[in-house]
Design a protein around this nucleic acid. Structure first.
Length: 516
RNA sequence: GUCAGUGUAGCUCAGCCGGUUAGAGCACAGCAUUCAUAACGCUGAGGUCGAGAGUUCAAGUCUCUCCACUGACACCA
């Protein structure tokens, strides 16, 4: 069952500090990576930054910095945030690194060998913000980029082109493969796009210093996309100090899933596989384009001044709250709306009231009546109705997680916790315990609920690793080597193991209209 | 403009091939109450299922029109 599993975030563009959207993507990837590790797979979780391009060059100039220094600065902010969010990435790729440059050159030479590069001419209106040419109506003399609201620049330059058109048939076949593009709603868009016929695209720019030079074409540097996508390759090097692109120099190749924002789906689902085919490399197994976040119904943007800074959110609600809310309440794949009131409500209800309180009340009872040993007859364990419920919910959880359906997966945990709360209310051990002859029954009930708590603690791990550990710690369970196949069985909690003093594992967040 | 998707209680969403009084969770109100983090539990209030028309014995569920939002329509990290 031990399989390799590779997951990537996009390589974030270091034009500006990380925002909530990139945090969201990265948290989602982290949850998947953790889930896969717990499932016993060897995971390579890759993230990083894309550092080249004219936009960055200009941003650096405006800050009076060398591009490299600007990139260093922003990169640190990413690393700092991922650290704060407890992101368990294995590799952090920087496209300004030497090994990446080397990989790009080697990859390029493979593409050249396949005869997939030619010199062409490209002219048109160019948006530096987008780093791309725009289709503009002929009579427009001073067109403006609809995205950036800035004037476009007229360019007429020689570019190297990649023969994307050559891969029309192969790409059509690939994107038809069930599960290659997720969610399904986005697959049609890509299929549609490809069916209209693929055009070659440019892979180099001239007059751009801040980029990787194209061998034997001194004036050219690689277009950011060609450069950035290859970050997935350089991040997969078995030995990063030895950037050789050979058949076995990569580990865990290709990616099982590239998780990206819906805006860059095409690059990953079409251009990227074609590039790999050209270089004679394996294509990724799937690409997942998730949706975007709005805030209180409005698009987040500098002009509106409503950008939600992930650091501020983190300081306000804490890491568990932030991770839980984003994964639990926003349909992965669809656009979602961040609402502060709901953020507070969901987190308090799920994590503090339902789960936290369940653990707290049960441990209190256990310690009060049984001290550190719960006297149960293990042969009676199988009769607990909670055993059945937990098995059902574990299955739901795993199935949903495999479909990247975090919401349903999280709901399965909450359902189980609700069942346990109901079980307690139903059995009312605080009444039974008054009758000394019922003590064994009470012991079994308490044990069953504690065991359910253990399972909840485990299931929570990919979502909210910190909280998960706090729960397991109270149950005195070693959380360092959890394995779902081994740990998710009923009855593994040692009744003689003892319990820590009950202490709320999740404090409530106070809602405050103007908190952030 | 063309194509696609979405529009169900205050919020987030379920509602399969059309069929009795439209569901869940959260939020809200009342009751009850300590084993527990004013938590858990019980009860309740809340919707002309975007609008209009049509097909049908019967439509949230099918058809058409319209409205709103979202996305794609080639180089938007």
């Amino acid at each position: 069952m031990n399989m390799k599993y590779t997951i990537t975030t996009p390589l974030y563009y270091v034009n500006d500090k990380p925002h909530l959207g990139s945090s969201y993507t990265t948290i989602a990837c982290d949850a998947i990576a953790r889930f896969q590790r717990l499932s016993g797979n060897t995971v390579l979780f890759l993230t990083g930054v894309d550092e080249h391009g004219q936009k960055i060059e200009r941003t650096a100039v405006s800050k009076n910095l060398q591009p490299q220094l600007h990139c260093d600065e922003i990169t640190e902010k990413y690393k700092y945030l991922w650290d704060k969010l407890n992101i368990s990435y294995d590799r952090f790729v920087r496209t300004s690194s030497e090994e990446h440059t080397s990989i790009v050159h080697q990859f390029y030479s493979r593409v050249l060998e396949s005869d997939d590069v030619y010199m062409g001419r490209q002219s048109g209106w160019y948006c530096v913000g987008c780093e791309e040419y725009k289709d503009i109506e002929d009579n427009d003399k001073s067109p403006i980029c609809s995205i950036h609201k800035k004037e476009l620049e007229w360019r007429d330059e020689e570019n190297l082109f990649f023969r994307l058109s050559k891969y029309q048939d192969q790409i059509e076949k690939l994107i038809q493969v069930d599960g290659f593009i997720s969610p399904k709603s986005r697959k049609n868009e890509i299929v549609n796009f490809v069916s209209k016929g693929l055009r070659d695209f440019s892979i180099s720019r001239i007059n751009l210093k801040w980029g990787i030079n194209v061998p034997e074409n001194k004036d050219h540097t690689f277009y950011v996309w060609f450069d950035a996508l290859l970050g997935y390759v350089s991040g997969s090097l078995r030995d990063q100090s030895c950037p050789e692109l050979t058949d076995d120099s990569l580990c865990n190749w290709p990616a099982n899933i590239h998780v990206i924002g819906k805006d860059i789906l095409r690059f990953h689902a079409v251009y990227w596989p074609a590039m790999l085919l050209s270089a004679g490399m394996k294509t990724p197994a799937s690409v997942f384009g998730h949706g975007f976040l709005t805030r209180e119904g409005q698009k987040m943007g500098k002009s509106l001044g409503n950008v939600l800074d992930p650091i501020e959110l983190l300081e306000y609600g804490g890491i568990d709250a932030m991770r839980w809310y984003l994964l639990r309440d926003i349909e992965f794949g669809e656009d979602g709306d961040f609402q502060m009131k709901r953020f507070v409500d969901i987190v308090n209800s799920d994590l503090s009231n339902t789960i936290g309180n369940l653990l707290n009340r049960t441990i209190t009872m256990s310690k009060k009546w049984f001290n550190d040993k719960i006297p149960i007859d293990k042969s009676l364990l199988t009769e607990s109705s909670l055993k059945l419920h937990s098995e059902i919910k574990i299955n739901e959880y795993i199935k949903s997680f495999n479909d990247s359906n975090f919401r349903n997966s999280a709901n399965a945990i909450i359902d189980l916790a609700n069942k346990a709360n109901l079980y307690l209310n139903d059995r009312a051990p605080w009444k039974l315990i008054k009758d000394i002859t019922k003590k064994e029954i009470v012991a079994l009930d308490i044990y069953s609920v504690l065991e359910t708590c253990r399972i909840i603690g485990l299931l929570l791990n990919p979502f909210v690793p910190d909280l998960s550990i706090r729960i397991l710690n109270q149950l005195k369970i070693d959380s360092s080597s959890i394995n779902f196949q081994k740990s998710l069985h009923w009855g593994l909690l040692d009744p003689d193991n003892g319990l820590e003093e009950p202490r709320p594992v999740m404090d409530k967040i106070e809602f405050n209209e103007n908190s952030i």
